[in-house]
Nucleic acid binder design. Structure first.
Lengths: 185, 185
DNA sequence: ACAGAAATAGACCGGTCTGTATAGTTCGAC
DNA sequence: GTCGAACTATACAGACCGGTCTATTTCTGT
């Protein structure tokens, strides 16, 4: 019964990497297969739902890892401001390392793609939101829910700005502002 | 010397509308022509740079109108909080009216597209940023530059979230947070 | 060893993509 | 009226798209 190859997972990883840099419509299936040296014949065996299913699963996987990293990063911080700073720093570093190519695995794919992909993105955003909200609430920050939404939006927008301008400054600007917000003044 | 038809402008308008809902790669040239009942023979006459030039000019045009609306909306507000509220409300309304299809004309196209499009988006974001910064500075809000960047990022991200979840709540959450930020506490 | 499921190979389909080439039409200037 | 520029029509190229198909190989359970 067990799987006998890791093709499915490798396909998912390759697809996730391409989707987050080129978006849904900008990434071709042939490119995914070529990039990962993947067998063409087995794409629709592993993903009978086609491109849509592949993208949705790729988003879910990548978003899961992202949320886990955010959770761990926040948990390791002594206070809310430090936590947000660490997240901002990590995102900025990751963006700069890839020469501003690899955007947010959720936000890059969400606007394109059909209903299946959109549903996956909604779930992913919800997870990220609850992670942030719980962290803020744990530290007694008021309006944790609304604030978490703002944090999410600001980070998503900052990544978009940074990627567009090829500059991490927007990320750090947002980080500075969020820090003051969370100090509860 | 003068133009003898309005084809060029109509092409631009149609393209702008489609790009902001479907993104760069999600919109085909044939679709633009069909949607606007535009003459197929003259596309590369008016836009010898092809799709890239068309998208860049469409972004520039749409962003110009957006910035002008933002400037007017902010200028009509008695204080910073009211100004941001009005902008948020307008964006939310517009998004809901189009059934969450029409996103930000800049942010929707920025991630895809080549260098020409990216350059147009950078300029557009810069204009929007300076409009916001000047407004905040005029009202004596401290850290106007950094804050304007955050406002931009938060609005861009909120539009992405709203479009993804089919719900204007993220926009209003961001609005509520920004309002407290700008009260200068 | 053998049966059968899991997985892969790779050709192939119709359609659409951006972009080009060329011929034709419409219009203003003189 | 004529000429040339502005504009449009149409056909087509070459590549690539997502997706389907059948044949074949690879592995597992018995």
């Amino acid at each position: 019964m067990g799987r006998r190859s890791d093709t499915r997972e490798r396909t998912l990883r390759t697809a996730a990497n391409l989707f987050r840099t080129q978006g849904y419509h900008g990434t071709g299936l042939n490119q995914v297969l070529a990039e990962g040296g993947l067998p063409k014949g087995s794409l629709y065996f592993h993903f009978p739902g086609g491109k849509e299913q592949l993208a949705a699963e790729a988003v879910t996987m990548a978003a899961g890892e992202l949320c886990e990293w955010v959770r761990a990063t926040l948990a390791a911080a002594p206070d809310p401001a430090a936590g947000l700073d660490a997240v901002v720093g990590g995102l900025a570093e990751h963006l700069a390392e890839s020469d501003f190519q690899r955007g947010c695995p959720i936000g890059t794919v969400a606007p394109d793609g059909g209903e299946v992909v959109r549903a996956a993105c909604v779930t992913a955003f919800a997870t990220w939101h609850s992670v942030t909200r719980d962290f803020l609430a744990l530290h007694g920050v008021p309006n944790a829910d609304t604030l978490a939404t703002t944090v999410l939006a600001a980070l998503e927008g900052a990544q978009l700005l940074a990627r567009t301008t090829h500059d991490t400054a927007p990320l750090y600007a947002v980080g500075a502002t969020l820090r003051t917000l969370v100090r509860g003044n």
